[in-house]
């Protein structure tokens, strides 16, 4: 399903969405962000590479091959990283994201001092100064799952970042003039963000209404066995 979506997204984009007079979303970004939120950072990164590469070679694109692939694989990695903390188990592998690696995989290793936190009780003057704290420790805080509003905001920002970063890359690589890249960008970013939030809300609602088969508690299972 998601693979099919990734395959047809560039085609639908050039056949239908781009000829709409009211602008439209960036379908490839939506497909990549959806994959990343549902399957985690590795799948998001791979989907970004595949979808971006297809978008790069679908005519009438004639810029650098791999430009969109690079941008979208980074976006897929980022949104996959965020997926574990979004509300309502939007992500299928909620909770499995907690691995002993930081957001960039540096909780251990030569860069671990960046995220170091000293949990020792305060001994300093007036309780200030808990020892050295790494400059990126904020990224390593254990965080509770976000609320629904925060989740929608994160999805909107990540989705809008797709067209914006693609436009920035097109200008940076010299494939498009600045004015060309900027012309429809606000409209496209708004469409993508709105549809991303709507899709996330739909997925959340569908997941909530799905009947949950809870495992029996152990004592009940024991009773069942005896009976």
């Amino acid at each position: 399903m998601r693979v099919a979506l990734l395959l047809v997204a560039p085609l639908l984009q050039v056949l239908l969405v781009n000829r709409s007079p009211w602008g439209g979303p960036d379908l490839v970004t939506l497909a990549v962000v959806w994959t990343a939120l549902a399957r985690g950072p590795v799948w998001g990164c791979a989907a970004g590479l595949a979808g971006g590469l297809l978008a790069d070679v679908t005519p009438p694109a004639d810029g650098t091959v791999g430009r969109t692939a690079l941008v979208l694989s980074l976006l897929g990695l980022l949104s996959g990283r965020l997926s574990g903390r979004l509300s309502g188990r939007l992500s299928g592998n909620f909770g499995r994201e907690r691995e002993p690696l930081g957001p960039l995989g540096w909780r251990r290793g030569p860069l671990s001092w960046l995220v170091r936190r000293d949990r020792a009780p305060s001994r300093g003057l007036l309780g200030i100064g808990r020892g050295p704290v790494g400059p990126l420790a904020w990224a390593e805080r254990e965080r509770a799952p976000m609320g629904r509003g925060a989740t929608s905001l994160v999805v909107a920002v990540v989705a809008a970042a797709g067209p914006v970063s693609q436009g920035a890359a097109a200008v940076a690589f010299g494939d498009e003039a600045w004015a060309t890249a900027a012309a429809g960008l606000p409209v496209t970013a708004a469409w993508t963000a709105a549809l991303g939030v709507a899709a996330a809300a739909t997925a959340r609602a569908a997941r909530r209404h799905r009947p949950v088969v809870a495992p029996l508690p152990p004592e009940a299972a024991a009773v069942m066995r005896r009976v």
Binding site: T64, V65, A69, L70, L101, G105
Partner: peptide, 19 residues
Amino acid sequence: RRAVVLLVLAAAVSLVAID
């Protein structure tokens, strides 16, 4: 998983660099 991610990112960077 880090290896896969790094591989994918390296593939994207090398596509751009080669092109």
